[in-house]
Design a protein around this nucleic acid. Structure first.
Lengths: 284, 284
DNA sequence: CGTCTAGTTGAATCGCATCAACAAGCGTGG
DNA sequence: CCACGCTTGTTGATGCGATTCAACTAGACG
């Protein structure tokens, strides 16, 4: 039943009333189909009685780490709602060089950026084993006209994505490497927290190279920056295991002190305990 | 009737059938109201007979250069469709420092990024005198449920904006100053061309500082880069007047040659005429 | 056990920011 | 009318921050 690789089932991803007995396959583990009401809950939108009454079913698909959910140039006809697992979306430039756009996880929707061109302009790749719900765009449009909350949720979702990209633009345009890495860790922390995981201790699911691509840095700079934050005591790093020790310091961090300033200040700070390196607000 | 400053008319921006005689005010100059069908044409969407029959009217508002269309924190309830003129949208960081997000012009829609939070997270400022059509979000939602093409056009519009931000992210994350400025000029050229202006000769409507903010560079770097492109003959710059001489060279430009490479190559190239500086594909 | 990938760290280089001086345009007001 | 302030743009000198290149370690895997 499950289509493990790129060969997605192009038809049959929606069931009508006649085939609703497929629900017999359900189980909390390895669930194969979801209702509209369940999708509404995943997206944190108020679910109306009308939506509960909706019998359309949406197929789940499993992907193993490394597999592609969609590829560059592939025809766009379905949105993908991440049920569990971790992924990356990448843009490929003219030489095939990957640029990471985002690290989607549970509750995120893939494919929105491809509606207007009819084919995928990016690729989505599973970083861990994933469970993804297929939502055919056409039926989404039909349902959104029937259920007002759903339509607003879609607009809201797209608006949120747009705002997220805007904050990325400002990060890349204006912040230092230290600030980018700090905000990246805080953003991950916040998202894990929303999903019920620990806010302070978590595992990175991506390589330094992928983080660097996402943040507009090289893998070496990411590695060095993590080491520096570690030495300052703001975080603890051990390979992919991260522990956030001082979130508010990470939030307000603009720039790490220059080596010159460090040397000047080292002796002064040796007695005063915790240094306030990196906490001085630096305009621009 | 016109509300020239920030004090937008909070009610009455839509007319119903009873006040339709306001259409008597029309004229190509200083037009005050537009129909849904006209808005559909502005957005380049197929206009159905049903949309032509729609009698709802949308108000135009004029802004003078320097005025704000919406400000940070202002309640979001209407989308703004640019009818004519040039603007910038900016994000303000915690210290009030401006970061330019976009330079909207005719056909662009403002406010999409604010749907999900209910208030504006950015500001829009007129760079020239502008004519803007107010589209109350609520009535847009209602109409989009009645007119299928309109709903798809909205999804498509938001999807396109998202894709545009993504290309900005990759520019800021991976490209050199020269490549950023080149692509910026090409993008302007393309947009002007779509609006019926010259593709090769145009006036910049923004300062070097605003360009720099948009591209994640300083104004000095922008100025220097324009001068360099000018010296190479790819463009001609005179203050804000730009002439694009070699669009394809601009497209393929990755990096300008380093000073070192320049010195090495200068003598070799003096006889061979046009240099191919900057045209060698440089990965990463 | 060797191979491959991921990660860390150092040294040298380069690209862009920063600081500064200066020119040009432009409206204001004596 | 020119003097004046103010904004915008250009160009040079210098320094910092991130990249680049390189060496090395640690796991993963067959």
């Amino acid at each position: 039943m499950l289509s493990p690789a790129n060969s997605l089932p192009t038809s049959g991803s929606i069931l009508n009333n006649e085939t609703i007995q497929a629900r017999a396959n359900w189980g909390n583990q390895g669930k194969l189909w979801s209702t509209l009401a369940e999708i509404g809950e995943f997206l944190h939108i108020p679910v109306s009685p009308a939506m509960h009454a909706e019998t359309t079913l949406f197929q789940h698909v499993h992907y193993k780490a490394g597999q592609r959910i969609h590829t560059l140039g592939q025809e766009f006809d379905t949105l993908y709602l991440v049920n569990c697992g971790f992924l990356k979306t990448v843009l490929l430039d003219e030489f095939g060089h990957e640029q990471v756009l985002h690290f989607p996880m549970k509750g995120d929707v893939l494919g929105i950026d491809s509606i207007h061109v009819g084919h995928h302009s990016s690729e989505a790749i599973a970083l861990s084993d994933c469970d993804v719900i297929l939502i055919p765009y056409k039926s989404m449009v039909v349902l959104s006209r029937q259920h007002e909350e759903l339509e607003h949720a879609l607009f809201s979702l797209m608006s949120r994505e747009l705002a997220r990209e805007q904050t990325m633009v400002t990060m890349l345009g204006a912040l230092s490497a230290e600030a980018r890495v700090s905000r990246f860790l805080l953003s991950l922390s916040e998202r894990f927290s929303c999903l019920g995981y620990s806010r302070n201790v978590f595992n990175l699911r991506m390589t330094r190279n992928e983080i660097g691509s996402y943040l507009g840095l090289t893998l070496e700079t990411v590695s060095r920056t993590l080491s520096a934050l570690n030495e300052l005591g703001l975080i603890s790093v051990n390979q992919r295991r991260i522990c956030i020790n001082d979130a508010s310091a990470l939030k307000s961090l603009r720039k790490l002190p220059s080596n010159k300033a460090k040397e000047k200040l080292t002796e002064c700070l040796q007695s005063s305990g915790i240094a306030n390196w990196g906490l001085t607000p630096v305009l621009n």
